[in-house]
Simulated scan of single mutants.
Amino acid sequence: MVGSTWYGVVVVAAAALVPAAGVAIALARRRARRGAAHPWRWSFAEVGLVVGTAPWLWMILTPRGSGRSVEAVPLVGLYAQLTGDPAVAVEQIGGNLLVFAAFGFCAPLRWDLRLPLVAALACAGSITVELLQYGLAIGRVTSVDDVLLNTLGATAAALGVALMQLLSKRRQARAVA
C-alpha cells in the first residue's frame, strides 16, 4: 500500500514545513536588512526548492532490496504502467512528475532561469539520480522513462511560472497605459 510505504517520509516532510517557513522568513528578513534584491521571493524560492525536492529524492533513493535493473527503451515502462494497475500508474507517473517540479517552479523565481535551462538542469539531476540508483544497487529500476517524466514535471512547473510572469507583465502594462 502506498500510504504505509511512504508514511514516514510524508510525516517528516509535513513536519518540516513549519520550520522551513521559519527559515525562509528569517532568511528574507536578513536579506531585506542588508538591502538585497527580492529578499522574500529569493528566500521562499530557495527553501521551497529544497523542501519540495528533498522528500522525493529520499523516496527514490530509499533501498528496496539489492540489485539493479535497467529500462533503457523509452516509453516501454510508461506504457506498461498505463496499461496496468491504475493506482500504480498514478503513484509512479505522478510521483515522477513531481520529483523535480519544485525545482522547476522555484529555480526560475530565484535565478531568473529560462525554460530550456530549467529542463536541461532537471534532466541532468534526474540522470544523476537514476545513475545513483544503478550504482548503489538499491533494488530500484533505472529507467529512461523516469528521466523523461522528471524532466517533464520540472519543465511544466517552469512553464507555469513563465506564464504567470507573462500575465503579470501584461497586467502591469495595462495598468500603466
Rank of each mutant, 00 (worst) to 15 (best):
A26E: 02
S4R: 13
V176N: 03
G84C: 10
R114F: 07
V76F: 10
K169S: 15
L163G: 00
A173N: 10
A13I: 13
W56I: 05
M164A: 15
A158N: 01
A158S: 13
W58T: 14
A156F: 14
V10S: 06
A120I: 00
A175P: 04
G48N: 13
T128M: 14
S126C: 09
L121N: 04
W111A: 11
L132Q: 14
P116V: 07
G22D: 00
V23M: 00
R170G: 02
T53L: 09
G52N: 00
L57P: 07
G77D: 10
R171F: 11
A154P: 00
E130S: 11
A158P: 01
V76W: 13
K169W: 12
G84I: 11
Q92P: 02
W40S: 03
G35W: 00
V11K: 05
A20Y: 09
G94E: 02
A80I: 07
G67W: 12
V144S: 05
L148Y: 07
W56T: 03
A107N: 04
L97M: 06
R140Q: 07
V144H: 04
A13N: 08
F103R: 08
T142S: 10
F100G: 06
L163N: 04
R41M: 13
Q133Y: 07
W58I: 14
V12G: 08
G94T: 03
L136R: 10
R34W: 07
A15D: 03
G84S: 15
A89H: 02
A87Y: 11
S4Q: 12
L131T: 06
L132A: 15
L166V: 11
G48A: 12
L78D: 06
L148N: 09
T142H: 00
D146F: 02
Q81D: 15
A20V: 04
A158I: 00
R34T: 04
L115G: 10
M1A: 09
G95K: 00
A54S: 12
V70R: 07
A158G: 13
A158T: 00
A119T: 10
E71A: 15
E71R: 14
A102G: 05
A162E: 11
G95P: 01
S4F: 10
L115I: 12
D146S: 05
I93V: 15
Q133H: 06
L49V: 03
F44G: 05
Q81K: 11
D145E: 14
V18C: 07
A37M: 05
W56S: 09
L117N: 05
T128K: 05
L159I: 03
S66A: 07
Q165K: 10
A72R: 09
A87M: 11
V51C: 01
V141A: 06
L57M: 12
R140I: 10
A28M: 05
L57Q: 09
A107K: 02
A87T: 11
A15T: 02
G139N: 03
V2P: 06
A122W: 03
E91V: 14
P63Y: 04
L113V: 05
G22T: 02
L27K: 03
